[in-house]
Simulated assay, not measured.
Amino acid sequence: MHRSGATMAWNVFKFCTALRGLGSIMILLVLGVVGVSYYSVVLTNFGPALYDGGLDSLTAVVVLILFHCLLVMLLWSYFSVVLTDPGSIPANWRPALDEERGEADPLNNGSEFNGLQTNPSNQRIRYCRKCNQLKPPRCHHCSVCGRCVLKMDHHCVWVVNCVGALNYKYFLLFLFYTFLETSLVTLALLPHFIAFFSDVEIPGTPGTLATTFLSFVLNLAFALSVLGFLIMHISLVAANTTTIEAYEKKTTPKWRYDLGRKKNFEQVFGTDKRYWFIPAYSDEDLRRMPALQGLEYPSKPDFDSQEF
């Protein structure tokens, strides 16, 4: 039995190592899909159509403007997720006192730091045995990154990073603009795709025709798959929960951080509407909304339950 457990731990370790090893390969794959789409939409089909005149030129202008605008927002959001640290526990972090409940500081009640993880009286204090440190609320340890991440949602191989408190909004925007961009490409190339199965003679070389066909299939597949993820994460934002928390709390009808859909949305996107659709926050929101920093989260005042 012990040997079986050791084998499972070793397999998990190798799996996590493999995920870390993907690294820039996934980034190159994303850029490859973008490149194929750009070649088929801009260089092969709608770029040359600008010189056809009439309705074809007007359609090409509209498609190219939308394509480039969405592409800029997609890449901006994507690299914001890739390059932004999802949130790490500050050095020497300690839980704040809850003066309204009259709670004493558990670190000054005669209990040793290493005893916090097993002391039943300190159920509100969370401790990571792997990192050997205290954990803020909603913080989880990522086995791939090898560290605790603030408000961790999941580790995403596509962005080669954890999705957490500081880059979750950017991840959602990446999904949103990816869905819009892939849907646009799918609809724009649909007539060309249909022409493959008709008797109409299609202009172009075999290489450009193959690229157009491949681009349509890839974008259709991404649009459908991203739509599923987008719907799932919209429901998570509406309930102010993460993928991990939704799994852990299972069928629990109440959730202490569910403040209503409007406030739940603001916990992720901020209150400044000018920044809702760009991967950034206003200075005012960062200053007055602790939840955006990933360490403190408002909860229902009348809800008394144990933290995860």
Rank of each mutant, 00 (worst) to 15 (best):
E266M: 15
L259H: 09
K273E: 15
L292N: 02
D283E: 14
L292R: 00
D258F: 00
K263D: 12
R256S: 13
D283K: 10
R256V: 09
K262M: 11
Y257G: 03
R274H: 12
Y275K: 13
S282Q: 13
D258W: 00
G260N: 09
D272K: 06
F265P: 04
V268A: 08
K262Y: 02
Y257R: 06
E284Y: 15
T271V: 02
P279G: 01
W255P: 11
P290W: 08
Y257D: 11
K273I: 09
Y281C: 02
D283T: 10
R274F: 12
L292I: 04
E296Y: 15
Y257E: 03
Y281W: 10
K262T: 13
L292W: 05
G294R: 07
P279S: 04
S299Y: 14
P290M: 07
T271L: 08
Q293D: 07
F277C: 06
R261M: 12
A291I: 14
Y297K: 02
P279K: 00
R261Q: 13
Y257L: 07
F277K: 04
L286K: 15
K273W: 10
G294A: 05
S282P: 07
S299V: 08
A291S: 14
Q267T: 05
G294E: 03
R261K: 15
A291F: 08
N264M: 09
D283S: 14
D283I: 04
S299E: 14
E266P: 00
Y281S: 01
E296S: 04
Y275E: 02
N264S: 05
P290Y: 11
G260Y: 12
E266V: 01
A291W: 13
L292G: 01
S282L: 12
P279T: 02
L259W: 04
P298W: 05
R256T: 05
P290N: 06
D258H: 06
Q267N: 15
L292M: 05
W255Q: 09
A280N: 11
R287F: 02
K254P: 00
E284Q: 12
